[in-house]
Amino acid sequence: MTVTFSAPELETERLILRAPDLSDFDAFAAFYASPRASFVGGPLSRELSWRSLALEAGHWVLRGFGRWTVIEKETKATVGIVGLWHPEGFPENELGWDLFDGATGKGYATEAGRAARDYAYGTLGWTTLTSLIAVGNDGSRRVAERLGASYDRDFTHERFGDMQVWRHPGPEACG
């Protein structure tokens, strides 16, 4: 018996955004074991990475939205996880992006982030959207800037520490 949940699939020029599943585990665990995960709660052991990937799937069922696994169309490679996120302990709905090693510098976070934001404003009817960015995560801050977001306020997360809330342009501005 196959257990699934009905997450929508999104497509952009270069990327497919689909629901996370077990086939993402190796790429997800490699990212969360790497120093690059230090801004998003890592590094994590393989077991904690597994639990975290399961959490990504469960978040969809609890909240009705979540983050998508991002696939590069040309190579079919799993390049990251991007989407809409609001676990307990977050101040507002957020748009988050984690790009895996080797996938940065191509504009993928911006491309996937824009598609996820359009889905939030268009399909879900949200009126505002933030991104939480750990202090010092300059790569992520630059993605927020490219998406037109601006600094809103400081926020301290129980586990991730000092962060900044960046606020995206609203639905009208994103057209």
């Binding site: 699934t4 949940f5 597994w50 399961a54 799937a57 469960g58 069922v61 609890l62």
Partner: peptide, 15 residues
Amino acid sequence: WNFFCTEIGHWVMNG
């Protein structure tokens, strides 16, 4: 809350 999400996600991961 996170652990409860993992409980549900476990079904997705393993069937």
